[in-house]
Structures are given as C-alpha cells and as structure tokens.
Design a protein around this nucleic acid. Structure first.
Lengths: 207, 207
DNA sequence: GGCAGAAGTCAACAATCGTTGGCATATCGT
DNA sequence: ACGATATGCCAACGATTGTTGACTTCTGCC
C-alpha cells in the first residue's frame, strides 16, 4: 500500500523495464538491514526478534525497516528466502549417495544462518513452517526423486531423510544438546551417512 | 512475593506439615488452567500463547492464572514438567532395543501434548531449551547408558538417538510435513527401528 | 546555486501483553 | 446466622510492540 511513495518503487516504467538499475545509495542500508534481520531471526526467532533490535544492529531507525520492507512479515519473508543449492548427484556412485548428501548438508548449514533462522521460527510461525514445507517439497523432495528407484516411494524416502537431517539441525544448532555439539563433524558424517543411505536406497525394513 | 496472600500458600504450618491436604474447591480451576496452558503452549509456543487466551480456554479471568501460578514463566515451568517414563528395557533382547524404543516413543508422543509443547517452545525460549537438555541428560541419556556396551560412548549414542527421534517429532508434529504425517505409524516404526538400533549397538561406521 | 527527491530522524499512535489491586460473591466452620 | 476466608471478576497500569506521518538533512542534476 502507498507503494508509489516507497523509494524502491520509484522510477518510470522505462527504467523498470531496463532491468539493470544503477545502484542506489540506500542499497548498503538495505543489505545491512537484511543481514541484521537474518542474525536476529536466527538467534531469537520471529517473535522475539524485534524490529527495534534489528534496526539497532543495522544502526538505523526502526522506521527505515518498515519503509524498505513494508512490514515485519515481509522482511522475514525475504530474509528467509533459501535455496538449498543441492548439487548434481547424478554422477555419484549409488552406494555413496548418503555420504554425499550428509556431508553437503553440513557445509551448507555452517555457511548460512538462514536455515537455523527458518527452523527456529517455523516452530511457532505458520508462514515460516509453510516455507519449510515448500523448501522440502520443491527442493529436497524433487532431488530425492531423481535418486530413488521407485518414484512412488520418493516422497516417503525424502521425508525420512528430512527427519534425520532436520533432527540433527535441531539438536545441534537450535537446542544445542551438549553431546551433539561436541561430536566432530567428520564423526557425525560417518554415523549419519548409513542412515540416509538406507532411507534413500534400501528396501523398507531392511537393516 | 506477597506469598501469604496466595490461597495456595494459605494454612498454618501445622497443615502444611501434615502433607496430605483436603482437596480445595479451586483445584478444578487449577487443573483447567494447566490443561488449557498445555494445549496453548503446544499449539502456539511460549510467546504466542497469551495468558488471556489460556484463561479464555479455561473460562476464567486472566488474573486467576497469575494468582495461582505466579507468573507466565512459572506457569510454563509447571506445564512443561515432563517425565519420559521410559520403561525398563533390561529384559528386551539386545537386537530388538531399537524397535522397542521407537515404538514406545510413538505411544508416548501421541498420548501427551507436553512434549510437542516443549519442542515448539524450546526453539525460541532459552529456559524451555534448557528443560529439553535436562530431560535428555537425566532421562534419555541415563537410560541409554544402561543399554550400550561402552559407557564412555553413551552420551554420543544417546545424542544420535535423540537427533532421529526429535527429528521425527519436529517434522511430524510441529512442521507437519505432509509425507511425514501420512506415513502410518507402523511403517514409520519399521523404517526408524534399524536406525536407532544401529545408533545404540553398532560399532561406529558400520552399516 | 538552487531545487527535486532520496535518505534518515524523531515522536507518537494504537494495539497487545503480563501483571496488579480493589471489590464482589461464594463457601464453610462455628 | 455470622464472620472469616477462599474464589472470582473487573478495570486499569506500565511496558513493549509494529507501524505511521511529519520533519530535517543530504545528494545529485539542471
């Protein structure tokens, strides 16, 4: 609403149609807000991460957050945009798929705080939970579908994989269970890979 | 503070020392508040579950909640008291421990909404997260210690078990991932039992 | 150099929250 | 029947929240 007033929406149709825009002076502020928002959402979740705190981190006025992102809900929506960036696993030996997937997930988790933020918020915020479901359905589930033998089994196998991987993310990065935090990543990969491998490839009930 | 005013603290020292108290008329109200609190905390998490909403569910005034439980934090603390009630697994055949543990957890989850409430809240509330860590350390970890061969490995194995079981709870009861919700409990037990069994008993890295 | 518009600050709004004190009613021992 | 005490409701406080509008300052173009 009042969209024409927003600086971001400024410019004629010709400029918009050009696609490439000259960088605005405010782009740095925008990025600072987004960075602070991701950290706060990751650390505190949606409700406890206040716009005032985010603005303080970004060293600007709380009103700027609203002016640039419309509302807290929209800010979270853009802060929680997340691409798993799953690599192409088509040339991985079928018996090493579990290990490849597990080790990739660890690198992805530790380079980007968006996923912990999403996980923390999804527990209480319905739209964040919906976002997680989308990521699962659009990214993990479709990728798993290309790896399994029977396509009809794909959603079920993907869900099992998600239960183990999100469980690790929950206990290690959100709840911070001491034993889980202390296990070296390499050991964790060794333990988890057979599990994921079995969920992906094994016949049901096989050990 | 102002403890003497609270009805619950009433009575002479002699009465308190008697231990067994005659049931008060307000006990029903107390129980109704606690029941409503558990449901609200489970559904909405700590922040979004307002005292006013809990009071409305219990059909009493919000001020009664405070009078009976002191504060929202204390109310949550008593609402989130949780005993895993892990059964004695000492006479279960060692190769069936995984199946026994997994199937027990499903019955426990579905009969009591306290655990989902705790899980939902622990993502954003530090004291709830601490409570989960306590339950893990005092109940699951000690139980696992009696089942594994090498006691030094117990915390690590318990953490792995927790990662899988809490991952299922998260995806099925909190995030409600469609495939995870749809899988029949029996199938889920079939899939998960070998995983937990391996975490409990297998040598590291064994498939 | 002046001016249009962007960038940022400030103060305040309305809503909601946990919490409190005062006051009415109900219950029960005597 | 009476009084003490438990139980409950009502209204309000103070704090915090997201959000808004008016105002000032800065930047870049003619």
């Amino acid at each position: 609403m009042t969209e024409g007033v927003l600086p971001e929406a400024g410019g004629s149709d010709a400029e918009s149609a050009a696609g490439v825009q000259r960088p605005r002076r405010s782009d740095a502020t925008r990025a600072a807000i987004l960075r602070a928002a991701r950290e706060r959402f990751a650390a505190d979740g949606y409700d406890r991460a206040t716009i005032r705190a985010i603005a303080a981190d970004a060293r600007i006025d709380p009103s700027m957050v609203i002016r640039y992102y419309g509302s807290k809900e929209e800010l979270f929506a853009t802060a929680a945009e997340f691409d798993l960036r799953l690599p192409d696993l088509s040339d991985v030996p079928p018996d090493r798929l579990g290990a490849a997937l597990v080790s990739y997930f660890f690198t992805r988790w530790e380079e980007d705080s968006t996923l912990p933020a999403l996980l923390r918020t999804a527990s209480t915020n319905p739209s964040a939970a919906e976002r997680v479901r989308e990521i699962f359905a659009n990214q993990l589930s479709t990728a798993v579908a290309r790896l399994v033998a029977d396509p009809a089994e794909a959603p079920r196998r993907a869900a099992l994989v998600a239960s183990q991987l999100l469980g690790v993310a929950l206990t290690r990065y959100v709840l911070r269970l001491p034993p889980m935090v202390d296990i070296p990543t390499a050991d964790l990969i060794t333990w988890l890979s057979p599990t994921v491998q079995r969920y992906l490839r094994a016949a049901p009930g096989t050990d």
